Simulated scan of single mutants.
Amino acid sequence: MPLHVPPAPAPALRSIRTALGSPTAVREDRTPSLRSARTPLTAGDPLPVHVLEQAGARGTAARTRLTGWRFLIKDGDRAVAAGEAMPTPDGWAFSHFFEGPYLASTERALAQAEALPTPYQPRLLSVPGLYMLTLWLHADITADAAFELFAPGDVLIPLAPAPPGIAAHRPHRAADLLPLLTPRLSPGARLQATA
């Protein structure tokens, strides 16, 4: 079933394209693949990026916050980096370029999602306290990309590398995975992890 990707804000995409044309932005973000590209670079596969603000402990609803839009940067048909635009009081601005394992993992998770029988709206969900990133498949395909709550039927696919004990690329119902994250995100759990 095809994914229903919400349209990225035009100023967000424009900021990424402008940064791709800026030698300073490409050089300062230490992305060797952008500097060594053999074909004109393109920005595609836009995904809204949300950060988990509240995991939904003890009967409370899990809540997120939209923090930006991420675009895969392609050299030909191969993703070599990602670029992120962030909201500002005046609209959208380029944030940064980066490389790393989440590029291939994002592409793999998107391919997994395309093969599912149910239509979804793809998003990225970051869980900073666990250094975790997931592909969030939102069940309401007509929702605004900035909508912060989970819907019944939402699915999370943890990207690799995933935290210990969480299998990467294994789809989980959000209602099942989020409660498992709550104890790991509690202040006591973080203190034990750093001790």
Results as ranks from 00 to 15, higher is better:
residue 26 V to H: 03
residue 27 R to P: 03
residue 28 E to W: 10
residue 29 D to P: 01
residue 31 T to F: 02
residue 31 T to K: 02
residue 31 T to L: 00
residue 32 P to W: 01
residue 32 P to R: 06
residue 34 L to Y: 05
residue 35 R to F: 00
residue 35 R to L: 14
residue 35 R to W: 01
residue 36 S to V: 14
residue 36 S to H: 11
residue 37 A to K: 04
residue 37 A to I: 06
residue 38 R to M: 11
residue 38 R to A: 12
residue 39 T to Q: 11
residue 39 T to V: 05
residue 40 P to Q: 11
residue 41 L to R: 03
residue 41 L to H: 02
residue 42 T to Y: 05
residue 42 T to L: 14
residue 42 T to E: 14
residue 42 T to M: 12
residue 44 G to C: 11
residue 44 G to Q: 12
residue 44 G to D: 15
residue 44 G to E: 14
residue 45 D to E: 13
residue 46 P to A: 07
residue 46 P to V: 08
residue 47 L to Y: 03
residue 47 L to R: 09
residue 47 L to T: 04
residue 48 P to I: 09
residue 50 H to D: 06
residue 52 L to E: 02
residue 52 L to A: 06
residue 54 Q to N: 15
residue 54 Q to W: 12
residue 54 Q to L: 12
residue 59 G to N: 08
residue 60 T to M: 10
residue 60 T to L: 11
residue 62 A to D: 06
residue 63 R to G: 07
residue 64 T to L: 05
residue 64 T to Q: 08
residue 65 R to Q: 15
residue 65 R to M: 13
residue 66 L to C: 13
residue 66 L to Y: 10
residue 66 L to H: 12
residue 66 L to T: 06
residue 66 L to E: 11
residue 66 L to F: 07
residue 67 T to F: 08
residue 68 G to H: 01
residue 69 W to T: 07
residue 69 W to P: 02
residue 69 W to E: 04
residue 70 R to E: 10
residue 71 F to Q: 01
residue 71 F to M: 06
residue 71 F to T: 03
residue 72 L to R: 05
residue 72 L to K: 01
residue 73 I to L: 11
residue 73 I to A: 01
residue 75 D to F: 05
residue 75 D to Y: 05
residue 76 G to I: 07
residue 77 D to N: 14
residue 79 A to Y: 07
residue 79 A to W: 10
residue 79 A to D: 12
residue 82 A to Q: 04
residue 82 A to D: 07
residue 82 A to L: 11
residue 82 A to M: 12
residue 82 A to S: 07
residue 83 G to D: 04
residue 83 G to I: 04
residue 83 G to P: 03
residue 83 G to F: 04
residue 85 A to H: 02
residue 86 M to N: 09
residue 88 T to R: 13
residue 89 P to N: 10
residue 89 P to R: 14
residue 90 D to M: 05
residue 90 D to S: 12
residue 91 G to H: 08
residue 91 G to W: 11
residue 92 W to G: 00
residue 93 A to K: 02
residue 93 A to R: 12
residue 95 S to H: 15
